[in-house]
Amino acid sequence: MNWNCTNTEERLSDYIDGLLTPAEAQAFKAHAAGCDDCSKMVAAVSSLVTSMHSLELEPAPPMLVNRIINATSGPRKEKVSWTSWFTTPGRWVQPRFVVGLATVAAAVLIVVYTLGFTPSKLRKANLSPLDAFRSANRSAHLTYARSVKYVNDLRVVYEIQSRLQPSNEPSPESQPMPEQQSQPKSGNPQEKSQTGPKPGHSQARTYAMLATYVNSGWVETCNASTRLAFFAAPMSATNRSAR
């Protein structure tokens, strides 16, 4: 059989795919064995085809199937019963669930300890409905009484502050010099309005008021926070005027 380079190139795929007759295959091989160009071409294409046949399919993008389904038939609507929430695997180890559970537990603990409940002191008798009701009733009344007392204390503090703040009487030791008033260092008019009560005068008035209320027994009723607020007012006024 007369076989040349053109035949080899035209029938190369038939040779690779095994579609040549035995006679054609023999002529093909005989020509390729004696022709450098054809031999290289046959080797290169055979190697390429073998490589392509051995190649695995590329993995599809993870969300491709869902994306196609959403674009065609729409998202699947499954019937979800309420029990499936508990039976869904991994539901209990989701970070948002764990964080939520921890937050709820912390909130419950804070409320329980605020109400004076101590788990270590829990007895079986405490679990009876009557005792629980009495305990809750007592806690509710105590809480109400504390709230009333707190509001009353606040009223006293506001009373004291309202009597101290409106005083505009100048104090002799903190009276600025007339030259200083006529020549302010800064041209900002807001600075004048920001000057607070004079420290010497405020402290004197504060101590006088304090003595009055100590005598009347009001201080005993003030809790720590209201006392702090009471003393904080003249001190902050002193700091502002010092600046």
Partner: peptide
């Protein structure tokens, strides 16, 4: 057939031999 031969030539020209 032509596709295979051309692809082999292209890969050879690129210095890639699978």
């Amino acid at each position: 057939n032509r596709g295979r031969i051309e692809l082999a030539k292209i890969l050879d020209a690129m210095g890639l031999r699978p």
